[in-house]
Design a protein around this nucleic acid. Structure first.
Length: 216
DNA sequence: TGATTCGTCGCTAGTCATTA
DNA sequence: TAATGACTAGCGACGAATCA
């Protein structure tokens, strides 16, 4: 019996989703380079367990109720004079109450969402086999950081993974918000899910460039 | 490294809607 | 009207993250 199966069902599902998301590349699958997002994409979560801390989302001034998505990809702006980050989150929701909680966290708000990148994560190698620390790939950083990088979130896109029964009911009767995208859980826990054409197409539609007829 | 705090999610009881 | 299923809110357990 696998480690994942021996745990409680929701923990096993989470673990399966994270296990597959770890195989996804630094740039979200299906997202192509565009003038709209000329900076650097990095995967913030799930991350290497050997790194003490990973990026998370928070509200200004808040030390509680942080959001730790199952999957978090960050697009860092290239300019130190205009720092921001775009984020793509993936949330696996094994219950409807969990879905409601997650949706509320990403709902449009009059306050600002911040992305918090801890120093150990910035200093750690970008991936196994490549010793380049992450901060060297983030063009707005000109020297090794000694403080966490806290950036305003410019754009939020969230992909929710739902159990089949929930997905079908939701797809039949609900209208997603503009930043929300939905997929069946099976699509997230499938082997090589990042190569699935449907998944790539879904995430492609979740890019900041997808809403424009053409870009200059 | 151990203790503490925090976030997530399943379980359960109560409520409501639907159907026979 | 009773049976059934879906949904909701609150609680507690557990693991991850953080702190000292």
């Amino acid at each position: 019996m696998s480690e994942a199966v021996s745990r409680k069902p929701h923990q096993a599902l989470d673990r399966l989703v994270r296990m597959q998301l770890k195989k996804w590349p630094q740039r979200p699958p299906g997202v192509v380079a565009s003038p709209k997002q000329p900076g650097t994409w990095l995967r913030g979560r799930p991350g290497d367990p050997s790194v003490a801390a990973h990026p998370f989302l928070k509200l200004p001034g808040a030390s509680r109720l942080r959001t730790l998505p199952d999957g978090l990809w960050l697009h860092f702006s290239p300019s130190a004079s205009d720092p921001y980050v775009d984020i793509l989150c993936i949330e696996a929701c094994s219950s409807l109450s969990n879905l409601l909680d997650k949706r509320s966290r990403f709902a449009p708000s009059t306050s600002s969402l911040l992305a918090f990148c801890p120093v150990p994560w910035l200093l750690a190698p970008v991936q196994p086999g490549d010793p380049t620390p992450r901060w060297r790939l983030i063009r707005m950083l000109k020297e090794e950081p000694t403080q966490p990088l806290v950036l305003p979130v410019r754009d939020v896109r969230v992909v929710f993974g739902l159990k089949s029964r929930h997905y079908e009911g939701f797809a039949r009767s609900q209208v997603p918000q503009a930043h929300e995208y939905f997929c069946p859980m099976e699509a997230l826990i499938a082997e090589r899910s990042h190569e699935d054409p449907d998944m790539r197409a879904l995430i492609s539609r979740a890019s900041a460039a997808a809403n424009f007829m053409r870009l200059p």
